[in-house]
Design a protein around this nucleic acid. Structure first.
Lengths: 101, 101
DNA sequence: TCCATTGCCTAGCAATACTAGGTATGGAAG
DNA sequence: CTTCCATACCTAGTATTGCTAGGCAATGGA
C-alpha cells in the first residue's frame, strides 16, 4: 500500500520511491532496497503497476513504475482496509481506559 | 500488541482472549487459535505474560494469562510505536490529496 | 585511480499468520 | 447411552514476506 501510495501522485523509479517514502513519512519508513524492489516486482506481476525503462538526464538507466487502473483500484481498497484496520486497533487499545473513568 | 491489550483490563485464558478480541474489534479481528496460542507462548517466553492453570466453574482446565510488569511496559511502548506508525501511514496516504487542492 | 552516488537486482534467513489437524471434558439432545 | 456441540488446549507444517548481505554497472569528482 505504501508503494502504491507513493506512486499515486506521479510515476517514479525504485530509488526515487524509496526516497519519497522516507521523506513523506518523516523518516519513519526507511525501506531498504531489498524490501522495495521485490515489492515492485510483485506488484507488477499482479498487474497493479506497469513499468518501462528510461534514461535519466545524465544517461543512467531507470525502471519507471506507474499505477495501472487495477493499481488505483487496489490502492483505494487498501485505503478502506487500512481505515477499518486502524479503527479496530484503536478500539482494542482504547477500551481499558474507558473502564477506568 | 493486540493480545497484550486484551489482557490489560484483566487476566484471561486463551479462549476468552480470542472472544474478547473479536468482540472489542467488532469482528474485525477474528483470530484463529493457531495464531493466538503460539503468540501467548512467545509472550510468556519473553516474560511479558505469566500464566497458571485454573479450573473453570464447571471443572475445565484453563491456562490463565496475566500481564507482567514487563508486559505492561511493552504494551505502553507498542502503543507509542503504533501511534508513530499509523501517523506515518496517514502521512503517506494523505499527501497526494494535498496536491490536488 | 579510487570512491561515492545513483540505480538495479537476488539468494537466503528469520519471523510469523494461518491451515489443518489432534486431544480432552462437560452437557445437551436423540 | 451415544452422539454431538461447545469449551479449551496444543502443534507441525506451509506460505508469505521483510530484511540482510551481498553483487553488478555507470557516472562524476577527489
Amino acid at each position: 500500500m505504501i508503494v502504491l501510495a507513493a506512486l499515486e501522485a506521479a510515476p517514479a523509479h525504485g530509488y526515487a520511491i524509496i526516497e519519497e517514502i522516507r521523506r513523506r513519512s518523516g523518516g519513519a519508513f526507511d525501506l531498504p532496497e531489498g524490501t522495495v524492489y521485490p515489492v515492485l516486482h510483485r506488484l507488477e506481476t499482479s498487474q497493479l503497476l506497469s513499468s518501462h525503462w528510461e534514461k535519466s538526464p545524465i544517461g543512467r538507466r531507470r525502471r519507471v513504475y506507474a499505477l495501472t487502473k487495477h493499481g488505483s483500484a487496489s490502492l483505494a481498497a487498501r485505503r478502506t482496509s487500512w481505515v477499518q484496520f486502524s479503527s479496530a486497533i484503536e478500539a482494542l487499545l482504547a477500551e481499558p481506559k474507558l473502564c477506568r473513568t
